[in-house]
Computed example of a mutant assay.
Amino acid sequence: MKLRKIALIALCLAVCFLSCNKDDDDGTVPVVEVRDRGEQQDKDKDSLLKYFATHYYNSSEFEAITNPTIADLKITKLADGADVPDGSTLLEKAMETNLETKEVVFADTNYEYYILKLKQGGGVESPTFADNVVVKYEGFTLDDAIFDSAVSPIGFDLTTLVPGWRKVFPQFNIAESFVENGDGTVSFVNQGIGVMFLPSGLGYFSQAQAGIPAYAPIIFKFELLQTSQNDHDNDGIPSYLEDIDGDGEVFDENTDEDFDARAGFIYNYIDSDDDGDGVLTRNELERITYVVDTNQGEQEPVLDEKVEFEVERSDNAGVITIKTLKIVDSNNNDVDDYLEKDVTTNYNE
């Protein structure tokens, strides 16, 4: 899978010289110039808009299928001088309906990207930008060359993928249900389906990949099938909530500024002691136990998911025991205990 993590620190490109004669044309490895992100975004936007003006999709045929998949979706280049076939929609025309323009700030740059929303997905859940997803997908460039695909369901951690995936998937719902087939495969019903059109800055930017040149916008057809919440450091706080500044990324949050010579910065979402006070983050969260007797008509508590998280439950003949962890600001200074080094309340003692 090509969707490797792209760090938010500046790219550092090295020039490698081979031991050879100065006159040998093969003596150096070409260097990719690091371009200004804003200028490159303008170029990528122009390229994507030109793509929309020259490509159409089989809209009527796709919409007529009861439970379509990305295999049913055909995006085709319009021949010079030809008209869009009946039952198809030019992507440029779709911008008036279901081809949505989105804006996001990433790496201090204002980006526009596009989502062709075909099916929202009938499931209740949507992933956050830091969760796991199960998907099918097909990736291709603006010249319609496929560089990667998964025809069977495959799982990924969104924090390890190109930034565009973290921006797009939270806007879709998972499948409504699934059916286990007799041959060991699974069929999903009413899954989220779309196409994302990403500028290079939300893809690989200057890092060329197999089949993807540097600074190339990229496109993905996808089906969102399932999701599960991540707590990468098992500290009791879901990883997406360790994005303190709310920018949709977890690679710029490092409260205690700790660093490992081999691993690099230890960001909060992978740091079991976020404030470096010697007390594990998990132990600086309040432990709460709820006992709900459904036989007596009692209802489960409604948790504020921004500060309290279920970690365990059991059901004994209708008596449900729910254990949670809750973020605490014990001195009411608007800094949570697990982020304040001077506060070392240990709820595990």
Rank of each mutant, 00 (worst) to 15 (best):
Y290T: 04
Q296N: 09
A216H: 13
E242H: 05
D235L: 12
F220T: 05
Y215R: 13
G248V: 00
S206Y: 15
A216S: 15
N295M: 01
D233F: 05
G211A: 12
G297E: 10
A208H: 01
T289A: 03
G248C: 01
N283D: 14
D277N: 15
S239N: 07
D293M: 01
N190Q: 14
F251L: 15
T294Q: 03
E257P: 05
D293A: 07
T281W: 03
Q207R: 13
T255E: 11
L161E: 12
G182M: 03
G264L: 10
G211H: 05
S187R: 14
Q299P: 12
K167L: 12
L198Y: 01
D293E: 02
D277R: 00
T160Q: 11
Y267M: 08
P217K: 03
E176T: 11
G164S: 04
G164Y: 04
I218K: 03
L280Y: 04
G236P: 09
T289R: 08
G203F: 04
I218Y: 08
G182N: 03
E242D: 13
V168R: 02
D233K: 00
L158P: 09
I288D: 09
S187V: 13
G297L: 09
S239F: 03
T281Q: 06
I193S: 11
P170F: 01
G264I: 07
F259T: 08
N230S: 15
D157H: 13
V292R: 10
L158I: 06
Q229S: 15
Q229W: 06
A263S: 15
D245Q: 08
P213Q: 14
G211Q: 05
E298N: 10
F178S: 11
G192R: 03
N230T: 07
Q207S: 12
E298Y: 06
Q296L: 08
G194P: 14
D247A: 02
L241G: 11
A216G: 14
P238V: 09
I212S: 09
Y267Q: 03
F265Y: 13
I219S: 10
Q207D: 12
D277S: 09
D252M: 00
V186M: 10
D258E: 13
A216T: 15
K167D: 08
S177V: 06
G192D: 07
A175G: 07
I218G: 08
D243Q: 07
D233V: 04
Y290P: 03
D243H: 04
D243W: 00
L202Y: 01
V186L: 08
E242M: 05
G203Y: 00
I218T: 15
F178Q: 09
Y267W: 11
P163V: 07
N230G: 06
G182T: 00
G276S: 10
P238Y: 07
S177H: 02
A208I: 06
E176N: 12
Y240I: 08
E286S: 11
V279T: 12
N181G: 05
P163Q: 06
Q207G: 07
I219N: 09
P170V: 02
L285I: 09
T227V: 09
L161R: 07
I237W: 01
P199K: 14
A175S: 15
E257G: 08
D293L: 05
I244R: 14
F222A: 05
N283V: 00
